[in-house]
């Protein structure tokens, strides 16, 4: 195992975060605060409690997940796409590193950044609404697994993309709608029956449901199902990444 390489990639990616601190951290925190102002106070004050939880508090896990998923995708996809775009990927390909080490460096850095961001948003939310975390270890587990899974997914998008448009298309057209549909701002029991059934095919639903359960012990699906779904998605992403490196898809000729 080339630990020095993992450390080098990790540090390099983290220093990129520090260089783009405003874009990476401050911007999501500001937009999340705006969500609290708009949804939590302005609209939320007119919405009754959901299963005994005020609307403002109810949306906190969903908002954290929204940022966690979108930031994990953005960090990891850009992290690997940029060397491809500038041509510096030659160094990565000619270095004595295996695909596992490359993944550990890039995905590790992306997940770290997203988790830190999630915790910052959690701290920000504390300023607006009362929050109770019933199962902190489960909350951290969901946070870490979601950040890792979507960082891996972002890595795959970064490898697949051969232009900036492709880099944006999946996060914007598929993932963000899935996050909104997955119950970030509501319980799916509030949806019409048909949409409830459609939503069961939405993987993000299971993540948000499990994450919300770790806070308030209320969920749309069982915690076991939530955990199983995220593990399946993680496994699928790992298998895809393994295939990418084995075949050299979009990386090696």
């Amino acid at each position: 195992m080339n630990l020095y390489a993992i450390k080098a990639i990790y540090k390099f990616e983290m220093s990129r975060t520090m260089r783009t601190l405003f874009q990476s951290v401050v911007s999501p925190v500001i937009s999340t605060s705006l969500y609290f102002v708009v949804f939590g106070s302005a609209i939320g004050s007119r919405i009754s409690e959901i299963e005994g939880i005020s609307y403002g508090s109810f949306i906190v896990p969903g908002l954290i997940m929204l940022s966690l998923i979108t930031q994990s995708l953005a960090n990891a996809s850009f992290g690997i796409y940029f060397p491809k775009f500038t041509g510096t990927i030659y160094e990565l390909l000619s270095a004595p590193v295996s695909f596992i080490e490359i993944i550990m460096g890039y995905v590790g850095a992306s997940a770290t950044k997203s988790i830190l961001l999630g915790l910052i948003i959690l701290a920000t939310a504390e300023l607006f609404v009362p929050i109770r975390i019933a199962h902190p270890y489960w909350m951290m587990l969901f946070l870490v697994l979601t950040a890792l899974t979507f960082s891996l997914f972002g890595f795959i998008i970064g490898i697949w993309a051969d232009n900036f448009e492709k880099l944006q298309i999946i996060p914007l057209l598929i993932v963000t709608p899935l996050v909104f549909l997955g119950g970030s701002f509501y319980s799916i029991s509030m949806l019409p029956p048909l949409w409830q059934k459609i939503n069961l095919f939405n993987p993000v639903l299971y993540l948000i449901s499990g994450f919300r359960w770790s806070f308030y012990e209320i969920s749309d699906v069982s915690i076991t199902l939530s955990l199983s779904m995220i593990m399946i998605f993680l496994g699928l992403c790992l298998a895809t990444v393994w295939w990418i490196f084995k075949t050299g898809y979009q990386v090696k000729q």
Partner: peptide, 10 residues
């Protein structure tokens, strides 16, 4: 420094 680490050197 990044290049050195990438090639497995302390």
């Amino acid at each position: 420094t990044f290049s050195r680490g990438l090639f497995g050197k302390p």
